[in-house]
Design a protein around this nucleic acid. Structure first.
Lengths: 228, 228
DNA sequence: TTATGATTAAAACGAACGTATGAATCATAA
DNA sequence: TTATGATTCATACGTTCGTTTTAATCATAA
């Protein structure tokens, strides 16, 4: 049937794009690399997706749609269970970042490849990618932000937003896994294989994020302290 | 004198490269953009620097040489003042990240432009850039790592290295200032102008980093706990 | 079996890329 | 003032880029 070959081709392209964008970035990946790795004709990307830009968007949407729906679902469940009472910060952080990190084990949904792609892309210089991602994230971010406001009523909202930002950074960087600095700080640590690494990364990152989120508020040098 | 025009041209190219690499990334910036913004001939980059790659390296070395020497100097001073006793984690974090962040106010040394460039580049996909940066950072990272080991003798070294990694991520991301997510989470916060932002970013980030660094150690789900 | 619409294939397009070349122009020392 | 070496300039080279085009091939319904 025509359907099967079609879908097969589309999916092979998406997989190749996901992996190559992850490895070399958007600008650093050519259509010829993608179609070659996917073993399809050069024109196939433009035929099925229209352009390189919209391929990139489809690559992300394939994974982000599920991720952000899941994040909404998890948060909703926790909030109903809490019955109006504020959630614990650890719950919120786990709902947002834990849900993301657990995708690493879910090969069906991109696994570590997508995670590393996402981590790198949040600092990607290309304009259209950043605005695209911003749009994709808007709703979810707002809901989680509100949950944090409610969970930490004594912390000024500005500080919460900043710390959310910092948490995103630490997470992106951790999952981007640019081995650059890892090669340098040559560990001298008997860290086990990659599987073990991901297993332990999650609790390590989580405790770091929570420590940062709940840290004592900063003292500004000379200006008066924010009122929230 | 020939020297002056030479230096002038070189510096104009470096400034244009710094800004454009920051704004559009390495692959996303063309030689024609650089030479056009610098108001020099197209061939000037290849004449003065040899290639686009070595221009990129010079752009970084111009700033990193000072930064890393300063980091070494600061750490050395603190260690002599401590006379063998371990430093406080906050001192070490400030020596590494504070020295970096204070470059934002130092227009002579690149200011926020270089900071944002550096933040973005740590997740840059281009192979040669990552290995280059890794090499530039190697010595400094090692010294600060050792200082942290000494300052936190009860924390397994693996966890310290990871947390260093997380701190780098949070910092990179914060200074990269990808306004993507900032546009999204539209603040609704009476954050003042950009100058104020940088002023307050530093204490905010510092308290976050220290909170993460000193967070309770993670509990691993089923495996036995690391011995350090 | 033939007609039809969807997909794949091969080839080419113009544009932009990083780089190289050789002549023109400059500042300086003899 | 002239010779010299450094720098700037206009221009072109060969590649590679994303995209387009036109024909061939495929699966399916009439």
């Amino acid at each position: 049937m025509a359907e099967i070959r079609n879908i097969d081709t589309r999916e092979r392209i998406l997989n190749a794009g996901e992996r190559l964008f992850m490895a070399h970035g958007y600008e650093g990946t050519s259509m010829r690399q993608i179609t070659s790795e996917a073993a399809v004709n050069l024109a196939a990307v433009n035929y099925h997706f229209g352009s390189k830009e919209s391929l990139m968007q489809k690559v992300f949407r394939r994974r982000l749609d599920w991720l952000n729906e899941e994040r909404m679902r998890v948060l909703g469940e926790m909030e109903s269970a809490a019955a109006g009472k504020p959630l614990k910060p650890s719950q919120i952080v786990d709902g947002f970042f834990g849900t993301l990190l657990r995708m690493a084990d879910d090969e069906e949904r991109g696994g570590v490849t997508f995670l590393r792609l996402l981590g790198r892309t949040l600092t990607e210089p290309s304009e259209f990618i950043r605005t695209f991602l911003a749009h994709e994230y808007a709703t979810v971010m707002d809901r989680y932000k509100e949950a944090l406001f409610k969970a930490l009523p004594d912390v000024p909202k500005a500080d919460i937003v900043w710390r959310f930002h910092f948490m995103l950074g630490a997470t992106s960087y951790a999952i981007a896994g640019t081995d650059a600095l890892r090669l340098v700080t040559d560990w001298q640590i008997e860290e086990a294989d990659a599987v073990d690494r991901v297993d332990r990364l999650v609790p390590r990152l989580m405790s770091f994020l929570l420590g940062g989120l709940r840290a004592p508020l900063p003292q500004y040098p000379d200006v008066t302290v924010d009122s929230k």
